[in-house]
């Protein structure tokens, strides 16, 4: 089980610059769907990558689904050599994205994000319209029902305002 409270508090508390995306962002906007991992877009700057590596290190990040014993070093060098990582940690499943289809990286997504105050910290979450846009851009058939629900949420929100 993924401890969303702990993961979000940990990252935000350590000053990691990130934006919530994916299923948890959808839940924050009102989705009723179950998701099993925390998806974030992290800012690719030296300071931020360093903070990210430091804060997650005690929670044993490892490539999710990779066979045990596969050499994987959780380090700044690994982050700079890659872009997106699907990880397992002792706090649960965590997906790190340097960039996402249809949205770009942290700096491109930030103007489309909203500030959330939760679990005693503040963090950014991708706005509902942009979340729909990037899910549409990803073009995955399994997302169709999730997109439909997000669009219903948008309609309900507009109906109420």
């Amino acid at each position: 089980m993924t401890d969303y409270r702990q993961l979000i508090s940990l990252l935000a508390g350590a000053g990691v610059e990130f934006i919530l995306i994916g299923g948890v962002a959808a839940v924050a906007h009102g989705s009723t769907r179950l998701t099993k991992d925390l998806d974030i877009v992290y800012r690719r700057t030296e300071e931020n990558v360093s903070r990210l590596v430091r804060v997650l290190a005690p929670y044993h990040p490892y490539l999710r689904g990779a066979p045990p014993g596969l050499p994987f070093e959780w380090s700044e060098r690994t982050i700079w050599n890659g872009l997106n990582f699907t990880l397992t940690t002792s706090l649960g499943a965590l997906d790190l994205f340097g960039e996402i289809t249809g949205g770009g990286g942290y700096d491109e997504l930030l103007p489309h994000s909203i500030r959330l105050h939760l679990f005693g910290v503040e963090c950014w979450c991708l706005g509902l319209e942009r979340l729909i846009y990037v899910k549409r851009a990803a073009g995955r058939p399994r997302d169709l029902e999730a997109i439909a629900e997000l669009e219903v949420i948008l309609e309900e929100r507009e109906r109420r305002s």
Binding site: Y4, A28, E145, A148, E151
Partner: peptide, 26 residues
């Protein structure tokens, strides 16, 4: 796909705070 979405569940969820929605997810 929207025709299959239960709007009553969505409306119920929208009455919760963001923190309550994530707690419900857990």
């Amino acid at each position: 796909y929207k025709k299959g979405i239960d709007r009553t569940l969505v409306r119920q969820n929208l009455r919760l705070t963001v923190e309550q929605r994530i707690e419900e997810l857990m």
